Computed example of a mutant assay.
Amino acid sequence: MTGPVANAAYIAIADTPSFIFLWVGDGLGLEQGRQCLKKWGFRRCEDICWVKTNKTNATPGLRHDSHTLFQRSKEHCLMGIKGTVRRSTDGHIIHANIDTDVIIAEEPPYGSTAKPEDMYRIIEHFALGRRRIELFGEDHNIRSGWLTVGKGLSSSNFNSEAYVRNFSDKDGKVWQGGGGRNPPPEAPHLVLTTPEIELLRPKSPMKNQQQMQQQSASISLTPSNSTNKLATLNSPQNPNAIGLNQEASSSNFSGPGPWAPPAEGFKGREGGNMGPDDRQMEITEILNLIEH
């Protein structure tokens, strides 16, 4: 398919969200591929590179054409996305950080359009939707779980009714999408998951995780006694303890920050300065209240 026909076909079959993987060869094909993705309503988000080896299909001469300055030994597959998918909320739609963007695989015999099997594996791992279609396919592209379309196919056993039933729920309803809505986790066309699978899923770093780790390290380096225990309870990470101390005093600390020694500038219930013995009794009283 070329021109307006191809454009209309991609727009008609592309759900929201959806992903496209487009082989573009090398050189000029990279720029042309990006233009195609933009015209079809996709944003380019990844570039998967196939580095070719020729251990079993070595040829006596170099393969190149009059437009190249270097010997071609790789191909690119551009990945485009339509819609918006976030790793933090849409883990039932995509499974990120499990594959690399480089494939090292044998080059097919001269004239063959075959691509690496690893490409299928990457797509199936990443995109958790089960509605998968391959365009311009040939007999060697037929794969379980995929709908293969192409004029190079010698036969077909496609049944449209059976195909639709594969993606319907118990009531026969099929997720239609549209309107920019992402499918819910229970959508019938998504790959089912289990708690065991979720435990294995790579997780994104927590927000401010590094800062929390630094604070934890600073706490562990301080001496372990009742004074530091009270300082820990009054940390920003322990709002409940802060609430208890606010009940005891309207101004917890007059020091420069939340980690200042609690005995310095500590004021009693009446707001007056306290002696060492009175301060110790006040601290002991609060600790007993927290522990019980």
Rank of each mutant, 00 (worst) to 15 (best):
E282V: 10
I11T: 12
G80K: 09
P17K: 14
R132N: 08
P236G: 07
S249H: 10
D139P: 00
I219A: 11
R130G: 01
Q210H: 10
S226M: 12
W40N: 11
S250N: 08
P261V: 07
G268S: 15
K151G: 15
G25Y: 05
M1S: 05
A105W: 11
F266A: 05
D47Y: 03
E270A: 10
Y163C: 06
R279Q: 08
N288A: 15
F70K: 09
G172A: 12
F126Y: 15
E161R: 09
S226Y: 01
L69Q: 12
N54T: 13
R131E: 07
F136W: 13
S216F: 05
A14E: 02
T59E: 15
H64K: 12
D101I: 05
K74Q: 13
V164Y: 01
D118K: 12
T194S: 15
L244H: 07
I123H: 03
G257C: 10
A217Q: 14
L192P: 00
G271C: 14
A96P: 01
V149A: 06
P185Y: 01
T59K: 13
E46T: 04
M274S: 05
N234V: 01
S144K: 10
R86C: 08
D15T: 02
D278S: 12
T194F: 00
F70H: 08
E106S: 07
P239D: 08
Y163V: 06
N273G: 13
P183C: 11
G150D: 04
G265D: 09
N252G: 04
W175K: 05
S155T: 13
H189W: 06
S226V: 03
K82I: 01
A105M: 02
I142P: 00
G61W: 07
R279M: 09
K74E: 10
K173D: 11
R86E: 09
R181D: 07
I286K: 11
T53A: 04
I123K: 03
Y110N: 12
W40G: 05
S144P: 03
T193C: 03
N228S: 11
P188K: 02
K170Q: 09
W146A: 02
E107T: 15
A105Q: 10
M119R: 01
W146C: 03
F167C: 03
P17M: 11
G272T: 14
I242G: 02
F19L: 12
A248M: 13
L221Q: 15
E124G: 00
G27T: 07
I98D: 00
T194G: 01
P223R: 14
I283W: 06
P184N: 07
R130C: 07
D277I: 09
R87D: 05
N166H: 07
V24G: 06
E117A: 14
